[in-house]
């Protein structure tokens, strides 16, 4: 087993001091590949913590450009970045945080035709997108490819985090919400307060680190609701929907 370099000991010294962490877990982080789809408020919260913690390979996917209205809640960007591709600005910031990482920049929107190639090979996929169609597509492709999916969302004062593992017998995003239902709330319709989306993204980053290092088992199939007004989290279980077109074949064992 390769030991950590002297630089790595220095860089990661504080997290290596955490009782549940060790060098093997640090190496698990460096060998992991995480795809972050969406580099808005959620992606900006999750990405720097993963880069900082030493997740070895990060794949960033977002087809948008930085806008003035992004700046209150997307701290990877500044005024000089307006008009630039979010994926390339974010990649540069993450390399500034940790030059030992491999950061792949995909300045493109994830759509049906490219979804498989963008997600394939990931240790875990983080859904940080801002619309229902992308969320359903990511859910579907992660189940096809058997990749764990940590999905976060925020709007208004509400945040939601969903932990999905295609090899476990719980429901999926499609079981929570059908694509045929009306478009639920988005930041464009409802607004959002920066720290609300930040808290959910940072919780997503924490769950990702726990998963990759196996520091703690994740509660797969759990939907967590965050209320920004009270600061309270609530945990719900998501059972599989019988005959679900996405996870239906895998959900027979749920109890």
């Amino acid at each position: 087993m390769t030991v950590l370099s002297r630089d790595d000991y220095g860089r990661y010294s504080r997290q290596l001091l955490v009782a549940e962490m060790d060098e093997v877990k640090q190496q698990a982080l460096s060998h992991a590949e995480v795809v972050i789809v969406g580099l808005g408020g959620l992606g900006c919260a999750v990405a720097p913590y993963l880069a900082g913690a030493g997740v070895g390979r990060l794949r960033l996917v977002d087809g948008d450009e930085v806008e003035l209205s992004n700046l209150p809640r997307q701290p990877l960007y500044g005024e000089p970045d307006i008009g630039e591709a979010k994926a390339s600005v974010a990649s540069q910031r993450l390399r500034d945080i940790n030059r030992t990482l491999s950061v792949q920049c995909h300045a493109t929107r994830l759509v049906k035709s490219n979804a498989e190639s963008l997600l394939r090979g990931a240790s875990v996929v983080l859904d940080c997108t801002d619309n229902m169609a992308s969320r359903q597509l990511i859910n579907q492709v992660c189940y096809q490819l058997g990749i764990p999916l940590i999905s976060s969302a925020a709007s208004g004062m509400q945040g939601q985090l969903l932990l999905l593992h295609p090899h476990q017998a719980h429901g999926c995003y499609r079981c929570l919400y059908a694509p045929a239902q009306s478009e639920p709330n988005t930041c464009l319709a409802q607004g959002v307060l920066g720290p609300v989306v930040g808290i959910v993204g940072i919780m997503q980053a924490l769950q990702t680190l726990l998963f990759i290092t196996a520091m703690a088992p994740l509660n797969w199939g759990e939907l967590r609701l965050f209320d920004g007004l009270s600061g309270q989290w609530q945990a719900l279980k998501l059972p599989p929907l019988e005959g679900c077109p996405v996870c239906g074949e895998n959900n027979a064992d749920y109890s």
Binding site: T129, A154, Q158, N185, C187, L241
Partner: peptide, 28 residues
């Protein structure tokens, strides 16, 4: 336990059930 919308008509409530209503959000 989340109850899918398609099951709402057939799901009968019992005394002391705790119902949580929430809005699915998709923003990011």
């Amino acid at each position: 336990q989340v109850i899918n919308r398609t099951l709402w008509p057939q799901h009968a409530l019992h005394a002391d059930d705790q119902v949580t209503l929430f809005t699915v959000v998709a923003g990011g």
